[in-house]
Design a protein around this nucleic acid. Structure first.
Lengths: 158, 158
DNA sequence: GCATAATAGATGTATATACACTTAACTGCG
DNA sequence: CGCAGTTAAGTGTATATACATCTATTATGC
């Protein structure tokens, strides 16, 4: 028998341990639960909070522009905006070009955003502190690089 | 007017740019699309591929044990296994303890896994190469740390 | 001006995610 | 034994994600 210590009875290498995608999905599950819990009293989920924050910065973008800002599929954005629209936190109206839809933060949306902000900030600070500023910066850098490189490599629809 | 260059008309800091959760969700969206595209000819989505790979390593775990391995909510796992069960790639049977369900990879599942593996490996290698081994390792380290720290900090159900 | 192409967005469908709640089965204690 | 409490898993519901396709509107070429 040759030396084959690392040859398990299954696949080599260990997929769940080394897969970049699985690691990302797992971390996203955990951290989303964390932020959602911290934002609970605001009535917003973290994804919804981020949408409102992005809108606050972007002004009144079209669906397409907002999707590009968020690096999110147009159809995903349509569905993600539904709960916010239902709650009256955003408004969606036709633009000059009648094909376009202009998304705007309502007064209620602005208010919800302001209310949720300190909750988000506290959660964010806790994550940064626990990771350490340096490791946190490396993580964000790695994530941003991953997004850039993959987007250069393949043709995504958005 | 005082100097307030960094005071935009919206929130400070820039939430979408700095939010750990948003960065993770965004990177996960992009990389999931990348892996799904590369695995397309196998008929498996990357999440499904990872489930099969985890099963291959774990043997015949209960739902609960598998959920813990994957750091995935039990109910999410139940739903995620449905398509694989429908395709005959896994089997779910009651255990000794009739409350438990034992999940096993079928011959078809093993075959699908073996077929998809080189596709996964090529995609994974491309990501590692593009990021550079060192930065990739830092990323995976940061992700693993994030999972650990958040799980220590809050009580998640799984 | 009109037919065709291109573009913006919505909808159908399927998977992924998780909380609240329910159901079924086991454990322990009297 | 028998019941209370615990545990494993499934279901109801809602959000998140994205591909394929459809609809409506604008742009283009003749």
């Amino acid at each position: 028998m040759h030396a084959q210590e690392s040859q398990s009875n299954s696949l080599n290498p260990n997929v769940p341990a080394s897969c970049t995608c699985f690691s990302l999905r797992k971390a996203t599950r955990v951290i989303t639960q964390f932020f959602d819990e911290r934002l609970q009293s605001s009535g917003l989920l973290v994804n919804q909070f981020t949408l409102l924050a992005a809108l606050s910065q972007a002004g009144s973008p079209t669906m397409k522009a907002l999707a590009q800002i968020l690096v999110m599929d147009r159809t995903t954005l349509t569905r993600n905006l539904k709960p916010l629209q239902r709650q009256g936190l955003i408004a969606i109206e036709p633009g000059q070009d009648q094909r376009e839809r202009i998304v705007t933060l309502t007064a209620a949306g602005q208010s919800a955003l302001v209310q949720a902000f300190p909750l988000w900030k506290a959660a964010q600070q806790q994550v940064v502190e626990r990771l350490g500023t340096e490791q946190w910066q490396m993580l964000l850098f790695g994530l941003a690089n991953t997004v850039s490189l993959v987007r250069e490599t393949v043709v995504l629809r958005n």
